[in-house]
């Protein structure tokens, strides 16, 4: 049986504050969760202690994950600006400045929801799973609503090169535009390669792409 020691000496005040929020449990806007981050970190580690070390390493939070975890209902302004700046600085554009790849491969990547799971094999194909959260091509009716619709994305932005670069940046690191965004930081995490990011950008910006038809 897995057990782990909580910090028993948790300040009564913290518990009282937590109780005041119960049972509706709606966390106030822009206030931090009441849990002691160190206690939570220990709880999380203990929950995954039998996983292979390279998997446990994936749960070591970076600064942004940590602060977004503590403020689930929005960051106070100063922290918001800090995250925005930090995440924007991570973006690496292609050396030749060309952000448009092959939209047909981009389409495959947008549909594919495998890759990165502990049940996946080393050679399991991966994708961005874009349709899980977004509408993209008008022909694809099975789309999610966690993210905004991207219907006719390139067309509505006039296929402007600057917009394509901005879009590449968002796919590379969504938090460079929206701190604590629900969207994975596909380039920054190295989950998707530069070519794959270009292919996805092309899916949005190529006039021949179904997204723009």
């Amino acid at each position: 049986m897995g057990t782990f020691k909580f910090n028993i000496a948790m300040p009564v005040a913290i518990i009282a504050t937590a109780l005041a929020a119960l049972p509706a449990a709606a966390v106030d806007k822009k206030t931090a969760l009441s849990a002691d981050p160190a206690v939570v970190k220990a709880a999380v580690s203990a929950t995954f202690k039998s996983a292979p070390p390279e998997w446990q390493a994936k749960l070591v939070q970076d600064e942004t994950q940590a602060i977004c975890s503590q403020y689930p209902n929005g960051l106070p302004d100063d922290l918001y600006q800090k995250v925005l700046a930090r995440e924007a600085a991570t973006i690496v554009l292609p050396a030749d400045g060309n952000v448009l790849g092959d939209w047909k491969n981009g389409q495959k990547l947008s549909q594919r929801g495998t890759g990165g799971q502990f049940s996946d094999k080393a050679d399991t194909p991966k994708g961005g799973n874009c349709y899980a959260c977004h509408q993209l091509s008008p022909k694809e009716l099975s789309y999610g609503s966690l993210g905004p619709s991207l219907l006719a994305y390139g067309k509505t932005k006039g296929y402007a090169p600057a917009e394509a670069i901005a879009a590449y940046g968002k796919i590379y690191n969504a938090q460079s535009a929206v701190p604590c965004s629900n969207m994975p930081r596909f380039g920054h995490s190295k989950f998707l390669s530069e070519q794959e990011l270009k292919d996805l950008t092309a899916y949005l910006f190529d006039p021949e792409s179904p997204v723009n038809k």
Binding site: A25, V27, L33, S34, A35, P37, V40, A43, V44, T47, K58, L59, Q61, Q65, A66, C68, S69, P72, G116, C180, P184, S189, F191
Partner: peptide
């Protein structure tokens, strides 16, 4: 509650 809101993993 904290675990529910804990951001982690590659995504």
């Amino acid at each position: 509650e904290a675990m529910f809101f804990q951001r982690g993993g590659q995504w």
